[in-house]
Design a binder for these strands. Structure first.
Lengths: 223, 223
DNA sequence: GTCTATATAATGATAGAC
DNA sequence: GTCTATCATTATATAGAC
């Protein structure tokens, strides 16, 4: 686990960084330095004194998240990445960190692809471990499957954020625990069913795909 | 189908709108009016003359996409929404429209939630149709399942965009057909396997979840 | 309808006092 | 380290000529 610290005994630099993560996470990287400074209770000039430029501030946030995440990951090597992230997101202390991370992915910068690559690799490793212990089915395309699983989790995160923004679900930044409970309540059942039994009743589509290899599926009149 | 029109015989207003959709879709809504005007080959002032404000321009783009999509949808009522979107995305003429749509969702405005709601509803209806015809398994949570499927497709779209931005995959805006082919090649097999057989070997997790109802899954030592 | 020129506000960034 | 004051640039938006 990481250091649990009170809010007051942070250096101004750390306070600015935290404020930036929260503000960028909520509003995107279009948010202004003045806003970040106000959130941190300092002058705009101090932000640039500590981080040089807006880009520097952003990089500092990226580095911080990266380091924290690596610490958490080494603490949870045998668990699925999605679950660890979900647990983090439900912890008030780490929720802004996850929100920021989602924003980085949504923003689509160069760091985003690398981060997602890491998620896919972790997931692939975890699924392979499941295969060895017999709980996960073997697959002909481990990488593709891991990609699919990660994509699903990212999409779910995106959906949750949209619904929170529309006021239809608890906000992950305001009430992280409630937000996770909401995701769980609305998707766990369906997700487990899908992962247990699949969606289709038989393998005609899969067989057709395998037969035609790289051809479009028989799309026109059935799923 | 919709009107096929040449590029030249568009009114300036339409040319500006198209340029805006493309630019906003590529760069996000932070893109400036000057850039849009330059893309359309007009002066910045003309953009505001026609649309009043940047917000007005954005609303015009939203309306246009909404109308086009409704026309396409009425033309493909019995097909899965994801497939229709994928087909559109692969058509050079409509690719910018899809790119813009993805941007709207990523931006997370009020229209985004409504649009996703529509996708979920369509998917739920389509899956129910599949249940009736016997190709899709019944579920205890149709809405949740539709949400899950839509989330997966959104996540896949997001992943594709990230990889394209990182230069590791063909760009959906530059070469739409190649981009779709790439998605298909990298995920269709794994997706079909997942939808046909699921991911888990047995129903212990599902059973445990159903028994505990609304409790967290037995996460610690297996998927 | 379309332009040039301009107003006004906000942005990131700098200089220098304390 | 932290501030106030200010700069240069860009943003959206307006006024008015053609």
């Amino acid at each position: 686990m990481l250091n649990v610290r009170s809010v007051d005994d942070l250096t101004a630099r750390a306070r600015i960084r935290d404020a930036a993560m929260l503000r960028f996470g909520r509003d995107g990287f279009g948010a202004g330095l003045r806003q970040v400074a106000a959130d941190a209770g300092v002058s705009p000039a101090l932000v640039l004194h500590h981080f040089g430029s807006k880009g520097g501030l952003r990089e500092a946030c990226d580095r911080y998240v990266h380091d924290e995440l690596r610490a958490v990951k080494s603490d949870a090597l045998d668990r699925p990445a999605g679950e660890v992230v979900a647990e983090l997101a439900a912890t008030a202390q780490y929720a802004p960190l996850v929100t920021y991370l989602v924003r980085v992915v949504l923003d689509g910068g160069p760091g985003a692809a690398a981060f997602v690559d890491g998620l896919v690799a972790d997931t692939a490793a975890y699924l392979e471990h499941g295969e060895r212990t017999g709980t996960v089915r073997p697959t002909s395309d481990p990488q593709g499957r891991a990609r699919y699983v990660v994509a699903g989790q990212l999409g779910l995160l995106l959906l949750t954020q949209l619904e929170a923004a529309a006021g239809r679900a608890p906000s992950p930044t305001t009430d992280p625990a409630a937000a996770l409970a909401h995701i769980t309540a609305t998707t766990m059942q369906a997700g487990l069913e899908l992962f247990t039994h699949g969606l289709l009743t038989d393998s005609t589509y899969l067989d057709a795909w395998r037969a035609g290899e790289r051809t479009a599926p028989p799309a026109r009149e059935q799923p």
